[in-house]
Design a protein around this nucleic acid. Structure first.
Lengths: 269, 269
DNA sequence: ACTAATTTGTTCGTATGTATG
DNA sequence: ACATACATACGAACAAATTAG
């Protein structure tokens, strides 16, 4: 019937009434595909528009939209005439690193950063981690992040130069990389993965962090993606004596990185 | 009308058609209460049974059941004559510590443990963490856990003696605390919280773990709850050179503790 | 092994009340 | 006031899977 590959069109795909799984799930996947391919840049369709477009009931459309809202990809509020797409809905709960930022902010502390390096370079290792050729130029940003007066983390970020070139002129002393990546380059990190390890900082790192000799640290490595492409590799070294992860698993909250309440627990049985 | 306090009965409470919030939420709370008070031990009622029992529509009942399914307290599938309750659905995705167990098992490694201590003691600090009087007797279990030949973690557990007394006769060399806590004591851990920190092991701990001098470690402290009561405090010290946390945040997978692929990454920029 | 009954999963239609722009 | 959208709730129908006989 439809000769065009639905994966390559911005319009709606035809849904299978049977055998293709629940209709609402098919709708979710199709809308995700269209969101990723930058359809809806002129406004997300309303519920009734989707009902007409796909030939589904309102309840089914609503079920699909609820999934997208829960994912944070669509925002909605009562009475808004069209629906509002949220592909530029700045970093919501993007894993642990974002919760670090929120944790520090919620304590009323400054989010200062000192930029150590901001340049363009070729680095085969990190280009490879971003899924790029080894000679691909990368924007490299290295900062020392503070919470109030004390240094808390060393942050190293590698970004593809073809996307991140405008950032070379930006000021990162207030730690708003994602905001600038989005507004200056049109790249909004919406997914990815993090790996967290316990390590002992090198003497150099320890000096930068002003940490005691017997202090461990958390290394967080993040690969951030946008629209299916890897757009960020980040390595953050967080002082282990000031931060910890915690999680409730009665609900399904996931993990958050928070400031410790006690100043220096060290072993702290 | 109903002279008996509904909080103390195993039967259904009467729901308020207005003023008591959404009917489905009242249903959820009432079913949670009944699950906690060990009703349904002879089988969870089906959808239609609940429709009759509470006088609601099937959709409203299903809405409530969906919440309970998402919580993991109820499982369901098509065609199964009654519904199946899952209050004894042994440790499903109980946070990071369980994923450690799964990670080691999925690599085909033995889960041996060497029990260092298993006794009854009073410890004000840990009794307090369990929400008990400081003089309350606790069952204390300390094990060294292995994955294959190498030691991976030191595990210390404190349990209320009035619940865990039968465990004093059990064998914990195969690391199945939760299974035995459930079958021998009728206590099934269903919720709780974890805190994770990076630390440097003490020399004693380092010797037990056979770790190098420049190895950091993760401390995981877990407070486990069952039916609203704290039933477990656990401190697990995991070798930082063998384990790491990782997480995808495109979906909402949460964090998992996994064995590292590389044998000794140490700093591993 | 087959059929029929049961039960859940999914979707539709419909309706009321509420909140927002 | 009005349109739009959300939340809730009910009823009905069919599909899919399981169990009972």
């Amino acid at each position: 019937m439809n000769g065009i590959d639905p994966k390559l069109t911005a319009g709606p795909a035809s849904l299978q009434r049977s055998g293709g799984g629940p209709l609402w799930r098919q709708l979710v996947e199709d809308l995700r595909r269209r969101l990723d391919s930058d359809a809806f840049s002129d406004g997300f369709p309303g519920e009734m528009a989707l009902v007409d477009e796909y030939g589904l009931s309102r309840q089914t459309v609503r079920h699909a939209l609820k999934v997208l809202r829960d994912e944070g990809r669509v925002v909605a509020s009562r009475g808004r005439p069209p629906r509002q797409a949220a592909p530029a809905e700045l970093a919501q709960r993007l894993g642990t690193l974002y919760s670090l930022h929120e944790s520090v902010r919620s304590l009323g502390l400054d989010q200062r950063s000192v930029v150590h390096t901001l340049d363009v370079r070729a680095d085969g290792v990190y280009a490879h981690r971003l899924g790029l050729e080894e000679s691909t130029p990368l924007v490299y940003l290295e900062r020392l992040r503070f919470a109030g007066d004390e240094p808390l983390a060393i942050d190293q970020v590698w970004l593809p130069h073809d996307l991140a070139a405008p950032l070379l002129e930006a000021d990162f002393s207030t730690t708003a990389l994602y905001e600038r990546y989005s507004t200056l380059c049109g790249v909004t990190v919406t997914g990815g993965a993090e790996r967290i390890q316990a390590v002992i900082p090198t003497p150099h790192e320890r000096r930068l962090l002003k940490a005691e000799a017997d202090t461990a640290a958390l290394v967080i490595r993040r690969l951030g993606t946008a629209k299916g492409r890897s757009v960020e590799f980040r390595r953050t070294l967080v002082r282990g004596d000031r931060f910890e992860l915690h999680s409730d698993f009665a609900g399904q909250d996931g993990y958050h990185l928070d400031l410790l309440r006690s100043p220096h627990p060290k072993q702290c049985r």
